[in-house]
Structure formats: C-alpha cells, structure tokens
Design a protein around this nucleic acid. Structure first.
Lengths: 219, 219
DNA sequence: CGCAAAGCAATGCGATCACATCGGAAAGGC
DNA sequence: GCCTTTCCGATGTGATCGCATTGCTTTGCG
C-alpha cells in the first residue's frame, strides 16, 4: 500500500504499532486509566516526545490500540482457521482461546474487558466494537453445523465464553472449570444431548483434561 | 444497630447512601473515570465539601458505592424470591433482570460492568466481587432442579446472561434477542431439549416482545 | 549542496483532581 | 449556658495530565 516508503516515514507504521502495543500492555496490567503519555512511553522504552509525535491526541492513541487489539485477535482466529482442521476443532480452539489460561490470553481478555468498559461511555469505540463483533459472530457461525439459527447459537456460545472469561479474570471461576463449561456448550450447540444429572463439571470427553494445554495450532 | 442516634450523626448513614447513589448514577452515565468529588456532588445536589466530609478518601467513596450496588442487587433478588413464585419463575425473573431492558436494569448492568473493569486492577474490589458472586451463584443454584451439578449449571447460566447483557449495553445484540437466548438456556438447564433447527431466534413464547416490559414483580 | 519534511526531545501551560486546611454554624451533653 | 462534637462550605496546594510549542537533528530529494 503506501507503507513501503523509504526515508522519513519508512518505519512510521512500525513505530506506531510498537507504541500501540505498549498501550495494550499498560491496559492489561493496570487498566485504561493508567494509560498516559508517560506510562506508555516508559513501557515502550521510548521518550514521551515520540509518543506525542506519533499520536498528537490521546484519543488517536487509544483508537490505534483498539484497532491493534482487533487485528491481533483476527490474526489468531485466522491462524486457527487456516490449519485445515475440522470446523468443530477450529471452533473449540477459537472459543477456548477466549478463556484466560496463560499470559497471552489473559492479556487479551483484560484488554477486551477494558475496551468494553470504554465503549459504554464512548460511542465511537462502541461502533467499532459492533462491527468487530458482527464479523466475529459470523465467523463462529460459519463453524457451526445446522440450519438457520447458526448465528443465534454462535452469539450465545461466544457470550457464554466471554462471560466465563471475565469470571476467570476476576477469580470467580477457575480457568479449567470455565474451559469445561465452554466445551459442554459447544457439544450442546452441536445437538449432543448433555446428560441431565451428575457429569457436567467435567465432560467425559477425554484428551488430557487439564488446563495447561495449548489448544490447536493457534499462537 | 448504632444508626438510630439523634442529633449530630442521626442522618449520617442516610447521607452517605445518598452520595453513594450519586456515584452509581455518574458511573452508569459516564463511567468510573468521570467519578470525581465535584461530579458526584453535583449529581447528588450537595456541596463538594459535604462529599469530602463523608468520604475523606476517594477510595472509600468507591467502595461504599460498590457495596451499595451489591445491596441494591441483593434486594432485587430477595424481592423476587419472596413472592412465593415457583423456583423456575423466580429464576427466570432473576436472570432476565440481568438483561438491560429499561433504565433501571441498564444502570445496574453498566455499574456492574464498570466495577468488573475496576476489579481487574484492584484486588480489594476483586475480593469483594468474588464473595458477591459466590453468594449469587449459590442462590441461583438453589433455584435449579436436579443433582450435584446444579452449581455448574448456575454459573454457566449467569455467565451467559452477563455476557449477553454486555452485548446489549454495547449494542451488539438486542435486548429482546438476548432475553430469548437466556430463556432458551434456562429451558436447557431444566433438561428440556431445544429443537435443533429453526426456532431459536424467537422462541414461540411471546407476550409483547418489545423492550419495555416489566418482568415479574421485581423492581 | 541546500532545502523541505519528518523525527523527536524538552519545556511550558492551563485544567483538573485528590486531598488538606480553616473557619464558622448547628446541636446535644453536661 | 458553655463546650465538645459533628457538620460542611470555602479555599488552598501539590501532583498529574493532555496538549501546545519550540528547536535541533536527520534524511532523502531535486
């Protein structure tokens, strides 16, 4: 596009991205309230002046970080989709990645939560988030079998995974338990009847049920 | 207890509560970041000096508001439980109240979302929130039939409702659709098989499906 | 080679915030 | 009827933030 210039402006986009990543790091660690020119600069290892140079207004910095987070998220999904694995397996990977079980996923969901909070008082961010979710829900729906209600089942699945993800972040629920709940819901969304009594805590489906697994090939 | 003094200190608790309510109102409208001594004072219709008098530190103000929100939430649940309605009916009321469909529920969930975000960078709030959820999930579990996995189903149900609630707040999903999804999940948690194809978008139950209904007797 | 544009550090400025301080008013307890 | 305690409005203060401004350096282009 117009990125591959040389000379001044050559590394422009790369520098912006580095700063945006610092914004995400600060957000994940201390919340959006802790995002300032100085904190971001310190985190990125650059001078505050540089931060201001690339983002004359704080708002642009926040929006760039938001877009960056979405791009990272999309990349993760794309990498899971591109493996040629079965839709069911891809779906499992994508949804269990929403549950924070390691540093990367925890950072991801912390950022997501922070921006959701921001969206409640910032219509601009809310609008971007709506578009992002429209795409995401569509992608998940494409991974589901069955008829016209695929999107409905997709929305419910993702909402459940995210609700559980926030529980895990706060410590209300464990990552392992949340993961099992998501797996159970995936099974249910595939029309598999869950036995009404006495098993939901850990579905009998095997494959190393502990929580420190690396799902799929994503990452 | 020690509240019913007369003279100075008589209306102490009442004044604190009034200010805490103003904090909740500001939080719901503009987010926690907009909560300052002056904004809260303006909202409560009192002088900034009075706010500072009752809450010498901002932290105390936030905590009081958090506790107040929990108390209001508990009161709502208690009023739904106390009607003598069937557990299934109470459950439906409690869970659909999590979906923002009017001003009161929207304020409630906005506040809840804001404090969840705060909990991610404030271990104190997180600890209080864990206790709150332990209680809440237990109450919901008591409304469910069946065996040992009641709590698991309760956690999943509430997580789904909250995930959907955040969708509604941002505008990702409509209140009506979210409500239907919750109702479907309640049915599933009761062991009722959901038809696999072609109905989930709006379950055949309807009674004025617009968003301005007052469910149950809660309020 | 010179020159315009981009990069970027440094400093300044006005606004805002949390909190401290002060002072006077109101209201029982003694 | 003083006196201590509570109440609370007013004003001050130091810190921080977003952003403007300035000026020096770098870099490729004509």
């Amino acid at each position: 596009m117009d990125t591959p210039k040389r000379g001044p402006g050559a590394e422009h986009e790369q520098r912006r991205q580095q700063i945006a990543d610092a914004v995400l790091a600060v957000t994940a660690e201390h919340g959006l309230a802790a995002v300032t020119q100085t904190s971001v600069a310190a985190r990125a290892g650059v001078s505050p002046g540089r931060v201001q140079h690339y983002f004359p207004a704080k708002r642009q910095m926040i929006e760039a970080a938001f877009d960056r987070a979405n791009a990272l998220s999309s990349a993760r999904i794309a990498s899971a989709t591109g493996t040629g694995a079965s839709p069911r397996r891809v779906l499992t990977t994508v949804l269990t990645e929403l549950i924070p079980y390691d540093t990367a996923t925890r950072v991801h969901m912390r950022v997501r939560q922070a921006f959701t909070a921001l969206a409640l008082s910032d219509e601009d961010i809310a609008e971007r988030m709506r578009r992002e979710y429209a795409r995401f829900h569509g992608q998940v729906a494409d991974l589901l079998p069955g008829g016209a209600d695929r999107r409905d089942r997709a929305v419910a699945l993702v909402a459940l995974a995210e609700g559980l993800a926030y529980y895990v972040l706060v410590g209300v629920d464990s990552a392992a338990a949340a993961r099992e709940r998501v797996l159970a819901a995936i099974a249910a969304a595939h029309g598999e009847a869950q036995e009404p009594v006495g098993s939901a805590a850990s579905v009998p489906r095997r494959d190393s049920d502990s929580a420190d697994r690396e799902p799929g090939s994503a990452r």
